[in-house]
Structure formats: C-alpha cells, structure tokens
C-alpha cells in the first residue's frame, strides 16, 4: 500500500525557530503524538518508537530514522523512517520537508511524503490510508507549529507573559494560546487512534455537505 502526500501547513513562527525544530530530530520526533527517539546511533541515524492506541489496545512500532539530507540554506530536511510492530504491520516513509517563507513573518512547512504500509494495516486500513495519513500529518504540523512558536517566544522573552495577549489577538489560535506560551505544548504520549477515527468520520460527513475538512 503506497500513498504519496504533498501538503503545506502554516507555521505560526518565523523561519529560524521553525528550522530549529525541523533540524533537531529529538524535537521533531516528538511532534508526532506518541513518538520518541529512543537512541542516537550517530549524527544521522536514530532509533525511535511510536505507540498507537486503538481503544484498549496499544501497538508499539519500533524502527529507525535516517537523515538523508539536511540543508540549512534551503531549509530542507530529507529523511527515511522505517518501522514494524510485533503484530505484523510495517511502514516506511520517505519525507522531504522544506520551510518556505509565509505571510506576516511566519513560514510554511511544505511536505512531500511517500508512505508504504505493509501487513495488517495495509490489508484492513487500505481505503483509509489517504485520510489517515492526512490526519496524522495535520496533527503533526499543528504540534510542530506550536513548538516553533513556543521556541520563538522563549527566545524572544525567556519569562515574558506578555506574549500571551499578542497571540490571543490572532483570533484563530486564541484558545490554545491562553496557556503561557513559554511552556512546551502538551503532546500526547500515545497516538490516540480512536480520536483519529472520530475526526475522520467528522471530516467525511463535513465533506458530504460541502464543507472544507480541517486540513
């Protein structure tokens, strides 16, 4: 099962902060809910894991990440992630992520991902692959944006609470920003697949009635 995704996500921070997150594999990995780096093999090779929770069941994917290219000049990361769980599913993703200048001093995260899934996920979840990948990437981009924003805020004013009203004025991001912007965003330690399914169903119906889905 092969899916290619090409998407752009707005990042609520300027280029330097966003690049700082993108170029730090530890920071980047934790943008994925339930994911973490378990071991640094060398500068470009890492071992990682992702925990996926579907109701009461938890699946743990263990795998490797290889940085194929990291270009500060073009703000581009190229990486290859591979993983498998004990229950008979495996996945690989070749990702090219680039930061592009955006509006209002912010930037945009442009991603091109080729995802291959094998095993049970590919058998049973085949028809959902595109939507699921979209949702996962949207969540990832959301956390990424928050992290970059938090990093930018902490660099600008290490203990400055005045950042909060500034963000709140932004309207769309008012709700999450009511918490002190300096604290790192709360990232779930497990990827909640039931929540994802619910979001998928919501988007499906929204699509039927002509509304734009969240992505």
């Amino acid at each position: 099962m092969e899916v290619t995704i090409e998407k752009q996500y707005p990042v609520a921070a300027a280029m330097p902060a966003a690049w700082a997150v993108l170029s730090d594999m530890h920071a980047l990995a934790t943008c994925m809910p339930g994911a973490q780096i378990t071991e640094d093999v060398d500068a470009t090779h890492f071992m990682g894991s992702v925990r996926v929770k579907v109701g009461p069941a938890v699946a743990a994917f263990a795998g490797t990440i290889e940085i194929l290219a990291l270009d500060a000049a073009s703000h581009t990361l190229k990486m290859l992630g591979k993983g498998a769980d004990k229950g008979g599913s495996s996945a690989s993703m070749e990702l090219t992520a680039q930061l592009l200048p955006g509006e209002g001093g912010h930037c945009v995260l442009a991603g091109h991902a080729a995802v291959i899934v094998n095993g049970k996920f590919a058998q049973f979840g085949g028809r959902m692959m595109n939507s699921v990948s979209d949702m996962i990437l949207a969540q990832f981009a959301e956390v990424f944006s928050q992290k970059a924003q938090a990093l930018q805020a902490s660099q600008a004013a290490p203990v400055d609470h005045s950042a909060a009203p500034h963000v709140a004025a932004d309207g769309a991001t008012a709700a999450p920003a009511t918490a002190p912007a300096v604290s790192a965003p709360v990232v779930a330690t497990e990827f909640n697949a039931l929540g994802l399914v619910w979001a998928l169903i919501k988007n499906f119906f929204a699509g039927l009635f002509g509304k734009k889905s969240g992505t």
Partner: peptide
C-alpha cells in the same frame, strides 16, 4: 493486491 503484495479487501 497492492504493489507490495498486500491483499486488499479480504473480509
């Protein structure tokens, strides 16, 4: 089947 040989739709 997909290109990787995953059977699609076996239920």
């Amino acid at each position: 089947f997909d290109k990787q040989g995953n059977i699609q739709g076996n239920s």
